[in-house]
């Protein structure tokens, strides 16, 4: 059946650490497949449009995914742990509204940043409290807070908008660090590294995997499951706050409909990145590549003048196909064996 119990007597005593080297594992990984897809999309795009390879165009293309990817990193951890947060786009709306309100009160950039991050943290804490404190299913809780958070924005703003952000605030969404390298892209890259380290190199990251694979087993192994989950909701809220700062800065205005429907794109990015929607497995490099793929596909469609809503069909199909195809393939293989 499996590699278990070889029953070859004494030979079994010395167990090697690894069966396959990390390189061998990489060669059969989802990440490599994604990388191939990314290269293909890149090549296709450069053939499809002569404008694609222009450095400034490429730089613009990154704005299609950097903000969503920042949330996707945290969402990836959350989904690996077996929970989900559908309120992220609404947290952006609320954080952006809070910042807009502060602008009207005369707040300056440092205060705005604090307010954006603080609102994100508060929203994340609220979600985390409801899920871990009462043991409620995160899907329902965050469908509820999704309405609530954006609802508050609507109450505050109605059909109006906040504008008049200070010019120094524009740097987060519009500034460039060097030549075509935007601040957002640098932030995205830094956060990718930070999250990769958290997930893959720390005890906390290990706990995230354990909780997602087997929450009961985690509890029985002395992991304080509620604390881990609460921290992840907090982190997801915080990253939504960061995205709110970048997006608000980039748009220069706050409307209650800001970032509408982003939760779907973030979840799709995470799932495309190879994170199991049921929890337990996934990697940050996968999410990073998925972000590039989605960003470039969106940009490519844009260059071909395909409207945004048609792209959403593509995203929806992608979301289902990415989960369905491995299952179909698995069944075909199992069928052949039998």
């Amino acid at each position: 059946m499996s590699l278990a119990t070889p029953d070859t007597g004494a030979q079994g005593r010395q167990i090697p650490d690894r069966l396959k080297s990390p390189l061998q594992r990489f060669l059969v990984s989802w990440e490599l497949l994604l990388l191939v897809v990314a290269v293909a999309v890149f090549t296709l795009n450069s053939f499809a449009s002569p404008y694609f390879l222009d450095p400034w165009n490429l730089s613009d293309a990154t704005f299609n995914f950097t903000e969503k990817a920042m949330i996707a990193f945290a969402m990836g951890l959350l989904i690996i742990s077996g929970e989900i947060d559908l309120s992220v786009a609404s947290i952006i709306a609320l954080a952006s509204t809070a910042m807009g309100f502060a602008v009207q009160m005369g707040a300056d950039t440092p205060v705005l940043v604090m307010i954006g991050l603080g609102t994100g943290l508060l929203c994340g804490a609220f979600n985390g409290f409801l899920v871990t404190g009462f043991g409620l299913p995160s899907i329902v809780v965050t469908i509820g807070t999704m309405s609530l958070f954006r609802g508050i924005s609507y109450i505050v703003l109605g059909d109006k908008a906040y504008t008049g952000y200070p010019s120094s605030f524009a740097f987060f969404g519009q500034g460039y660090v060097w030549w075509v390298i935007s601040f957002e892209f640098v932030l995205f890259a830094l956060l990718a590294i930070v999250f990769a380290v958290i997930l893959h190199k720390t005890n906390f990251g290990r706990a995230v995997y354990v909780v997602g694979n087997n929450p009961v087993g985690a509890l029985f192994s002395g992991i304080r499951v509620p604390r881990v989950k609460f921290a992840l909701f907090l982190l997801t809220g915080l990253m939504s706050g960061v995205a709110a700062i970048c997006l608000t800065s980039r748009l220069g205005a706050t409307r209650p409909s800001i970032a509408f429907g982003w939760e779907l794109e973030v979840v799709t990015m995470v799932v495309l990145g190879g994170v199991n929607i049921l929890g337990g497995s996934g990697s940050i490099p996968g999410v990073v590549i998925a972000a590039f793929v989605m960003g470039m596909v969106t940009f490519g469609f844009g260059l071909l003048n395909v409207p945004g809503i048609v792209m959403s069909i593509f995203i929806g199909l992608l979301l289902i196909a990415v989960i369905a195809l491995p299952r179909i393939a698995g069944r075909v293989i199992a069928h052949r064996k039998a």
């Binding site: 779907l264 048609v310 069909i313 929806g316 289902i320 299952r327």
Partner: peptide
């Protein structure tokens, strides 16, 4: 038949139907 989580299926079809 494919045992895909309901939330994922309907989030996906939701955008697909709208797009259509």
């Amino acid at each position: 038949k494919l045992d895909i989580p309901p939330i994922v299926v309907t989030l996906g079809t939701m955008t697909i139907y709208r797009g259509i």
